[in-house]
Nucleic acid binder design. Structure first.
Lengths: 206, 206
DNA sequence: CAAGTATCCGAGTATTTATTCGGGTTTCAA
DNA sequence: TTGAAACCCGAATAAATACTCGGATACTTG
């Protein structure tokens, strides 16, 4: 694909000094994006904010889009790790507990950096995010389908693909909406319980 | 507020000729946004695409942001009308039917112009959309809270505010996710039935 | 129809932003 | 220690974009 090439790093940092530079660029990009909007987030400003010369930025990134693509990727990796850690071992859990655990995991994921997540989701053109994010979403979808099948006897015996799609989409989309419009609720126990209830009622037979 | 002023129209068109111009500008803005990205959607290109001079655009809009703010407002009005029309008269409906009707209404809303809705949601910085959209969301929230209370005996007697928030957010967010990531499903009867089932299970006692 | 508005126009200017490139500095490894 | 490679830099250039303004045209109304 031609398009994706544009978003790829220009060259790899090898010394620790330059690795720090790249990290500083991504940190700065995050800060600038949260403060201003995407189209006011200029490469020069990112470099300034990172405390490096503009030239250095272009050593490692062909342009602004590539910087944000890398930032998205870094956040995705962190979020994925946080989710995996929270899910932990699943042995011995009831279906109900399992569902609750997955809801919590999704929330832990976005809580890695809610402001940045919201800003990215909200400001970055979709073609930049999607390339970085689709793989993670698809992984998560696979995982959840497997999970769903693991306690198959307890759920409705109709179209598990369909059920898994609705369930995962609901969980994903609701939390996304929350992080953008009402992030406080991500810390509200009663609200989270209600989300668990929503998913449980949907997935488990009475 | 200082900010909102920036997004307001510069002057009102009074003759039918200029009203057509303004409409043409909004149509062109929609087309350009769907094709390209927000920051490549330049005022000059919008004017070209609308078949008018760039000067005319600035007669009515102080800048690009104001054009898109107006576009969002126009779409919101259309979507709101479509939803209201679909909901129609509610007398004599069962709670289950009512829930189904509301799910359908939300879908009818985004189907007014799915591509544009997705593009707007996806590309436009949030501060521009929110000013235009918050009022509609809040109206809808009020409406749904009232609806929920109208068949109160059938739903769980706990915190109706909380239940209404979760229910409406779920419906809103899931359909939004669909229109962006998988718009085909908005025409899939089986999928829509599944969404109705999700909402019904959540809201109605067994 | 004549004056007064409303509308239209787009070349030209101002501004913003992206990106390069040549040269200096630091690190590494032989 | 010394050459090579990695790294850093930012003034200068190129390109994209926003926006203005003075004048032409169309409509409206008395």
């Amino acid at each position: 694909m031609r398009l994706s090439k544009r978003y790829q790093p220009r060259k790899q940092p090898v010394q620790s000094r330059s690795k720090a530079t790249v990290e500083a660029i991504l940190d700065a990009a995050a800060r600038v994006l949260i403060d201003k909007t995407y189209d006011h987030a200029t490469t020069n400003e990112i470099a300034d904010c990172a405390g490096i010369g503009i030239g250095s930025l272009y050593e490692y990134f062909p342009g602004k889009e590539a910087v944000f693509a890398a930032l998205i990727h870094r956040l995705n990796v962190k979020m994925y790790a946080a989710m995996k850690e929270h899910i932990g071992e699943l042995g011995g859990l009831s279906a109900r507990e399992l569902i609750g655990r997955v809801v919590e995991a999704r929330i832990r994921g976005v809580l890695v950096s809610p402001d940045l997540y919201a800003a990215l989701r909200d400001q970055i053109p979709h073609d930049i995010t999607s390339a970085q994010t689709d793989r993670f979403i698809s992984d998560f979808h696979q995982f959840s389908l497997g999970m769903l099948q693991s306690f198959a006897p307890q759920i409705r015996p109709i179209a598990p693909e369909l059920v898994a799609d609705v369930a995962m989409r609901a969980m994903y989309a609701i939390v996304e909406d929350l992080v953008i419009h009402d992030p406080q609720k991500l810390h509200d126990e009663a609200y989270i319980d209600e989300l668990k209830y929503l998913m449980t009622r949907y997935l488990l037979e009475p």
